[in-house]
């Protein structure tokens, strides 16, 4: 699992000095291995245009996430263990190849969201 990511565009990884944060209900959180299994992963424009330098699972994930999907879906479709998928996604997010939308832990208490899901399910025939 120790396949280091090549720096994008030949720059050193510390050039920007900013880890790519992502949005969760308007706040920012770093991506790490505690990534939720349902967190949504999407290929960034950087990932879409420069995947050629990536190899193996890193490349597979960037290709797969041209369609936004969860960490669990990535693991299932690429036949990776969940723990491995999380680490790979965290690597890719840190280098800007994918962006991640993490769920807010407070969703379970959010009455508005619960109602919204109820409305959505009621349309199923």
């Amino acid at each position: 699992m120790n396949r280091p990511l090549p720096p994008p565009g030949g720059q050193s990884r510390d050039v920007s000095g900013v880890r790519p944060y992502l949005l969760t209900s308007g706040r920012s959180q770093p991506v790490d291995e505690s990534l939720e299994i349902e967190a949504q992963v999407a290929t960034s424009s950087q990932g879409a245009t420069s995947p050629g330098t990536l190899t193996f699972e890193h490349r597979d994930i960037v290709e797969l996430c041209r369609t936004t999907m969860s960490v669990a879906e990535i693991a299932a479709l690429l036949r990776l263990h969940i723990g491995v998928a999380r680490v790979l996604v965290a690597d890719l997010a840190a280098h800007g190849y994918v962006v991640v939308r993490r769920p807010s832990a407070a969703l379970g208490q959010d009455l508005g969201m619960i109602e919204r899901v109820i409305r959505g399910l009621e349309t199923i025939r």
């Binding site: 790519p20 992502l22 949005l23 939720e36 349902e38 967190a39 949504q40 992963v41 999407a42 290929t43 960034s44 424009s45 950087q46 936004t68 969860s70 800007g96 962006v99 991640v100 939308r101 769920p103 969703l107 969201m113 899901v117």
Partner: peptide, 14 residues
Amino acid sequence: SADAVARRAPTPVK
């Protein structure tokens, strides 16, 4: 652009 992509991603619930 990364933020824009993240904003377009769906909110997952379970």
